[in-house]
Amino acid sequence: MNVNLSRRRFIKGVIASSAAAASSAAWYSAAADDRPAGTVERLVVLNVNGRKRPVDVLPQETLAFTLRYKLGLTGTKLGCNRGECGACTVLVDDINHYACSMLTHSVRGRAVTTVEGLQDASGALHPVQQAFIDELAPQCGYCTPGQIMSAVALLRENSEPTRQEVREALSGNLCRCGAYDHYLNAVMTASKRMRARGQIT
């Protein structure tokens, strides 16, 4: 951290950059205590969706908490908050992870991508997002961001997966509506389109 940047100025910057972030109460909770000796640095800069996001992070804070309640990225859903359902799936260095089960401090220096970071600079949808619309894949939509992130991670690793491989790759993402078949259709469609456009090889 820049030694000329005072703690007060840093926190002001954090507040300004987190205008969409959750309530002042959550902020109070995060900022209330000074760091006890021997614990991790709390004032960190995260790389989220290609942007630098300064944020004050508690030692025990999960990535899902930071994203939702401090950075205002509520597309990452909490279905169980204990690694059972996959609704909070995000990419960390292009690999899908449950954000509810990762400490935010563990992603310092790594690239975090959430569902909000998939559209390109012009606002065009990622091919996986577009395929999810075209196949009417979501029902209630609550698990959808997690399904999309797992699908994006899969297609980066395997541009031409079989349906069986998609099933296995997404099996950590529950859908209570039972929209699985439509999600599978959408991932297969996205894979086909992305290969046709040379977006993946």
Binding site: G75, V115, E116, L125, Q129, L136, P138, P145
Partner: peptide, 10 residues
């Protein structure tokens, strides 16, 4: 409403 479901804006 489906656009919001796939972009996280919902």
């Amino acid at each position: 409403d489906i656009h919001g479901k796939v972009t996280g804006k919902a």
